[in-house]
């Protein structure tokens, strides 16, 4: 009976499910055209240029000592910064979600400052603070620890721009963690410390890993906030994005393309890992973002 009224089921493959709403062709067509023109074709230009080098030429350019040095600086500093952000970002997310104190909502809003503040502004401000005569730089200068114009400065800038990624990834998950499991844990005789380390932290692990990966990826690609504070000495404090910029200034497009391709491949690998973590988290804990 119902089969008589409903339209005959379409057999085989169909691109889209029928709908009464108009505009599918127009909106999807515009979306794909605009995406292709602005994002896809430019990225393909990069891929074609580096493919044109051939594997040997590519390998030679990618293993140039200065290129490897800059990649090492970028990745090591981004790893350290993401590590610091995971520790403090988790603590901040915990404090903002679980405790009530005056000014909590203001501090919650301030977390997004690095998203809103232009990176060049952050860069010169951080340099002013951590230079040997700056507010914080002056505290460490007598100890012989220079922060600005060294890799430590790069880490500071990456902590600044990466912090919201960690906090904003953990916060919604922490809000979802059910109080009941904590109560159950407490009634079964666990101390508060045991409840936190054995119940709460494990369920936060996917979010913490995702936040770490996001902050790390952002740190590796970051340019504006770092170049002012870094000192930019090759092999010591020269980051990979800066080396791309320098190669471009020298009209060495091949050199720039190779570094960019290596960085893109690495960040796509990271993106893939993030997606894996989230898929695993959805299976294991029933949520993820």
């Amino acid at each position: 009976m119902s089969a008589a009224v409903s339209p005959a089921p379409r057999r085989g493959w169909s691109f889209r499910r029928p709908s009464v709403i108009p505009g599918f062709g127009l909106t999807l067509g515009f979306t794909l055209t605009y995406f292709s023109l602005v994002i896809l074709i430019p990225l393909l230009a990069l891929a074609i240029r580096s493919a044109g080098l051939g594997p040997e030429g590519f390998w030679k350019a990618a293993t140039d000592p200065r290129v490897l040095g800059s990649l090492r600086v970028s990745f090591v500093t981004a790893l350290i910064a993401a590590g610091v952000n995971v520790v403090f970002g988790t603590l901040i997310a915990w404090v903002l979600v679980r405790y009530r104190f005056p000014g909590r909502r203001i501090f919650d809003a301030i977390i997004d400052l690095p998203f809103a503040l232009p990176t060049a502004v952050a860069g010169i401000a951080l340099t002013a603070i951590y230079a040997p005569n700056g507010t914080i730089g002056a505290l460490f200068a007598p100890l012989g620890w220079r922060i600005a114009y060294t890799p430590s400065g790069i880490v500071i800038a990456m902590i600044f721009i990466g912090l919201p990624f960690v906090v904003r990834t953990i916060q919604p998950i922490l809000e979802e963690v059910s109080h009941e499991v904590e109560e159950a844990s407490a009634t079964l005789g666990a101390s508060r410390f045991q409840t936190i380390t054995r119940i709460i932290l494990p369920s936060l692990t996917p979010a913490i890993l995702t936040g770490f990966a996001l902050a790390f990826a952002r740190g590796v690609g970051e340019y504006g906030s770092i170049i002012f504070i870094a000192g930019n000495i090759p092999f010591v404090s020269e980051i990979a994005p800066l080396l791309i910029y320098i190669r471009l200034q020298e009209f060495n497009y091949v050199g720039a393309t190779v570094i960019a391709t290596v960085m893109l491949l690495l960040s796509f690998a990271l993106l893939f890992i993030i997606n894996l973590i989230q898929a695993w988290s959805r299976r294991r804990y029933g949520y993820g973002n």
Partner: peptide, 25 residues
């Protein structure tokens, strides 16, 4: 996923792709 792609590209690379597309050569 594709729409989010530009967020995982370093800003310098976002500029570089246009230099390769429109620059000399």
């Amino acid at each position: 996923t594709l729409i989010d792609l530009p967020f995982s590209v370093s800003p310098v690379i976002s500029g570089l792709v246009y230099v390769l597309l429109f620059g000399a050569g």
